[in-house]
Design a protein around this nucleic acid. Structure first.
Length: 137
DNA sequence: GCCAACGTTGGC
DNA sequence: GCCAACGTTGGC
């Protein structure tokens, strides 16, 4: 089991919309580092859902329901997408400020690689985020 | 709205 | 293959 973090601007695709949809194709990734993370995802892996630009917080958790396949929004074979389904809300959103101020979390991909839209989350980071989000799997 | 970070492009 | 220019992302 691996853990991930996916970013979305609420104005483009929000957590609320995701919950309504019950399932979504995570398309449009055009960055190799992010693509590699998508490729490495396994069915059942969990991914934190982060609101960028507006919100600046992790608001929920999703799971991989379909592993990487050709991104249907492009003909270029280099690009992949996966399908996610929402699992649940965090009881308390975990803000970027909290993450930056937390000694366990301040080295996350999210902080270190600011522009990476699909990042890895370590087991330690996952456990800490569960604490701060008052969330249990 | 600004600007730093950083990935990509293209000339040489 | 290097590196300057440029575009995009995302926090502030």
């Amino acid at each position: 089991m691996a853990y991930w973090l996916i970013k979305s601007e609420p104005s483009a695709y929000s957590w609320e919309q995701f919950k309504k949809d019950k399932k979504t194709q995570w398309t449009g990734v055009r960055n190799y580092a992010a693509r590699n993370n998508l490729r490495d995802m396994k069915k059942g892996d969990l991914a934190f859902f982060y609101h960028s630009n507006v919100g600046l917080a992790i608001v929920g958790i999703a799971k991989v329901v379909k592993e990487a396949y050709q991104d249907p929004t492009t003909a270029e074979p280099a690009w992949l997408c996966v399908d996610f389904a929402p699992v649940k809300d965090l009881n308390k959103p975990v803000s970027l400020v909290q993450i930056k101020n937390d000694p366990i979390l301040n080295n996350m991909d999210l902080v270190r690689l600011q522009r990476l839209s699909v990042g890895k989350v370590t087991e330690k980071e996952f456990v800490r985020l569960c604490e701060l989000g008052e969330f249990a799997v």
